[in-house]
Design a protein around this nucleic acid. Structure first.
Length: 114
DNA sequence: TGGGTGACCATAG
DNA sequence: ACTATGGCCACCC
């Protein structure tokens, strides 16, 4: 039988593939799954990521402006920023600095490049 | 069953 | 420039 949460599983897989010191965006992940099936679902999957036994580096996932949108949903809002800084990502005012540099797009990095 | 919500993104005024 | 609204699709009540 088919799994309804196939979408979630896909998201977790991609998030785990995010290299250290890099960050990705919800829309990029959603698009990588096939289309922007409502980037909101990606965030929601993250919200349920706590249900996953595997460690999902949700802290490496931010919105398109590099803002730590989900820090509020973390066990401790400071944990997300702390983890990011731990990996060398500079965070200022709940926003990633040089986001252009740390941005990791699965469509560009993983895929295809022909 | 139907309606509301959501860690978003894009376009229009 | 900023604010407002629509769209996307899965989950909860």
């Amino acid at each position: 039988m088919k799994k309804d949460n196939d979408f979630f599983d896909n998201v977790y897989s991609v998030v785990r593939l995010i290299p250290k010191g890099r960050a990705s965006s919800y829309g990029a992940i959603a698009k990588y799954l096939g289309s922007a099936r409502g980037a909101r679902m990606v965030g929601w999957a993250m919200n349920n990521s706590h249900a996953q036994s595997e460690n999902v580096p949700a802290h490496r996932v931010v919105n398109r402006v590099g803002l730590l949108s989900g820090k509020n949903t973390f066990p401790s809002p400071f944990q997300m920023q702390a983890l990011l800084e731990e990996e060398g990502i500079m965070v200022k005012d709940d926003q990633i600095e040089n986001f252009d540099s740390v941005f990791w797009d699965p469509n560009t990095e993983l895929d295809i490049e022909r």
